[in-house]
Simulated scan of single mutants.
Amino acid sequence: MTSLICGSLAYDSIMQFGGRFSEALLADQLHKINVAFLVPEMRREFGGCAGNIAYNLKLLNGDPLIMATIGNDGGSYLERLDRLQITRRCVRTIDTSYTAQAFITTDVNGNQITAFHPGAMTFSHENKVADAGPVKLAIVAPDGRDGMLQHAVDCVDLDIPFIFDPGQGLPMFNGSELVHFIELATYVAVNDYEAELLTGRTELSLDQVARRVSALIVTRGDKGAEIFANGQRYEIPCVTAEAVVDPTGCGDAFRAGLMYGITQGMDWETTGRLASLMGSIKIAQQGGQNHAPSRQEIEDRFHKAFGYRF
């Protein structure tokens, strides 16, 4: 059951700030910020939402198909996909651009400030969903603006159900464009901050958004998640992590669990719980793709957390 993942491939430069952003930013001086954060720890990781989602879906023995663009410096990422046995037949190389790159600074409370260079991602609209072949489910995740718009329409034209996951790309779209995405989508997945931004820009309440799709999923960090589907609201608990190390990529891990549950026909409670578990596994490791539990270990941890097997 192939899952098409339309989104970014990126290199993440992840830096750790030993203090709190709230103590370094003066509320009455936000109109003229001039601040530097000392970050003695820095790593470069493979990232991008498409890469992260595909990685986690592969851990579940899913069949991810990435549709993304990568730059002239993307050779190491392509080699990694080969090692992971994740097909790259829908990954297009843009020779005139760098691969998208995120520069992420995290404080001691897990808050993040990110600077993002889109690079090759800007050309994502050159990829066509029709080239993917048979697909069970798709996700339109943060990517180039034109690519997100195009891929959503492509999915509808090809009768492919898809998750609209605007993520950090949400500010690129105005209210009417976001309403259009919602009307096209089968599912919408956002975190609590994105939910506030989505409802503010569209002037739709969460209930109104939920009535326009088969399911609306809102993640709320350590407070778990909510799934609005079938006229019901499902509360999904947060799974206690072995350690809280790095939130980078947790939302992508959650979405991989969603995609797996949907393609496998699981009920919404089980789907949400699996997604929550995947997020908790990821947060215990640095970077978006360094956790490596076996499928059996994931099943065992699900059983331990919820008392049954998925």
Results as ranks from 00 to 15, higher is better:
residue 67 M to P: 05
residue 58 K to C: 12
residue 60 L to I: 08
residue 75 G to D: 15
residue 92 R to W: 07
residue 79 E to N: 08
residue 122 T to G: 02
residue 71 G to R: 04
residue 117 H to I: 09
residue 118 P to R: 04
residue 113 I to E: 03
residue 130 A to L: 13
residue 95 D to E: 14
residue 61 N to W: 08
residue 102 A to C: 12
residue 122 T to L: 09
residue 45 E to Q: 11
residue 75 G to I: 04
residue 98 Y to T: 15
residue 112 Q to E: 03
residue 44 R to W: 10
residue 117 H to D: 12
residue 72 N to V: 06
residue 126 E to Q: 13
residue 110 G to C: 01
residue 76 S to E: 10
residue 112 Q to I: 05
residue 92 R to C: 07
residue 75 G to E: 14
residue 124 S to P: 10
residue 116 F to G: 10
residue 71 G to I: 13
residue 52 N to Y: 09
residue 100 A to M: 14
residue 117 H to G: 13
residue 87 T to F: 00
residue 111 N to T: 02
residue 98 Y to K: 13
residue 43 R to S: 11
residue 42 M to C: 14
residue 58 K to T: 08
residue 52 N to D: 10
residue 98 Y to M: 14
residue 79 E to K: 01
residue 128 K to Y: 07
residue 91 V to M: 03
residue 62 G to W: 06
residue 42 M to R: 02
residue 107 D to N: 05
residue 67 M to K: 06
residue 120 A to M: 07
residue 103 F to G: 10
residue 65 L to G: 02
residue 95 D to A: 15
residue 91 V to L: 03
residue 84 L to M: 13
residue 65 L to K: 03
residue 120 A to G: 06
residue 89 R to P: 00
residue 51 G to R: 04
residue 91 V to G: 01
residue 59 L to A: 12
residue 62 G to K: 07
residue 87 T to R: 10
residue 122 T to N: 06
residue 77 Y to F: 14
residue 69 T to K: 10
residue 108 V to H: 06
residue 122 T to E: 11
residue 124 S to R: 07
residue 93 T to F: 01
residue 115 A to I: 10
residue 43 R to W: 11
residue 54 A to Y: 00
residue 49 C to E: 02
residue 81 L to R: 01
residue 102 A to L: 00
residue 80 R to T: 07
residue 110 G to D: 08
residue 54 A to H: 00
residue 107 D to W: 05
residue 90 C to Y: 04
residue 53 I to S: 05
residue 62 G to C: 08
residue 60 L to C: 07
residue 82 D to M: 02
residue 120 A to Q: 09
residue 71 G to N: 10
residue 88 R to P: 00
residue 48 G to L: 11
residue 55 Y to E: 07
residue 117 H to Q: 13
